[in-house]
Simulated assay, not measured.
Amino acid sequence: MTLDHVIARLAVRYGALPEPPVRQRKRRSSLDPYLAEMRTFTMRRLYARDPREFTLARLTRELREKTGRKFCEDTLRNYLVRHNLYQLWGDKHANP
């Protein structure tokens, strides 16, 4: 029996077994439900007469008032960067 014949027999024997599915982890953030509010805040800041009034601290405060949850300013900034909203702020840290 040649090696090719053995490999062909093994392929016939074990080739019909289904492979176990690869589990895909769906990563979610606790900020995902509030993405619409962050987009609205960014647009309000973009068209504001004085955009300096619309800070991360104010966004944090508004989210805390609406949702009752506390978020860190750094967490919000990283989330805005991930969703390409922070570059609209025009800050020097917009493109890390």
Rank of each mutant, 00 (worst) to 15 (best):
F71P: 10
G68T: 07
P21N: 06
D32M: 01
V12Y: 15
H93M: 14
I7C: 12
R39V: 07
A36D: 04
E73M: 05
E53Y: 10
L3H: 04
E62V: 03
K70H: 07
T55R: 01
R28A: 13
P96R: 08
A8S: 14
P96W: 11
R49D: 14
H93K: 12
T55I: 01
R44K: 06
V12K: 14
P51R: 03
K92A: 07
G68I: 12
A36K: 04
L46P: 08
L46G: 04
R49V: 13
P21G: 13
A36N: 04
L85A: 00
G90L: 02
R52G: 07
G90Y: 02
V6P: 11
L31W: 00
R25W: 15
P20H: 15
R27Y: 12
V22N: 15
A16G: 12
R13F: 10
H5Q: 11
W89D: 12
P96T: 06
A48T: 02
E73W: 05
K26T: 14
E73S: 06
I7L: 09
R45E: 00
E62G: 04
R9E: 12
M43Q: 04
G68D: 05
S30Q: 12
P51S: 11
T67E: 05
E53I: 09
N84S: 13
D4P: 13
Y47S: 07
L31S: 00
S29R: 01
Y34S: 00
F41G: 03
N84W: 08
I7P: 11
L85W: 00
D32W: 01
K26G: 14
S29Q: 03
R58D: 08
L80I: 01
T60Q: 02
V6E: 15
D50R: 00
H83Y: 02
P18A: 07
S29K: 01
V81A: 13
R39P: 03
P51D: 13
A36I: 06
E19K: 15
Y79V: 00
Q87T: 06
T42P: 04
P18I: 09
E65F: 04
V6M: 11
L63T: 05
R45S: 01
V12E: 15
N95A: 11
M43A: 04
D74Q: 09
E19Y: 10
P33D: 07
R9S: 12
A8I: 10
D4S: 11
R69W: 14
L80N: 03
D32S: 00
L10E: 09
R69Q: 12
E65C: 05
R77Y: 09
A16M: 14
Y14C: 08
A11D: 09
S29F: 05
D91W: 13
L85F: 00
G68R: 10
R61F: 08
K66S: 10
T42M: 02
R9D: 08
W89V: 07
L63M: 06
R61A: 14
V12G: 13
K26E: 15
V22T: 14
H5I: 08
A57Q: 11
R69C: 09
R27K: 14
P18K: 07
T2F: 07
Y79G: 00
C72D: 11
G68K: 08
D4I: 06
F71A: 10
Y47P: 07
L85C: 00
T42K: 03
E62F: 03
E65D: 08
E65N: 02
S30V: 14
R52I: 09
M1C: 12
R64C: 05
P33E: 08
T55S: 00
L31P: 01
A8R: 12
G15F: 02
S30C: 15
M43F: 02
D50V: 13
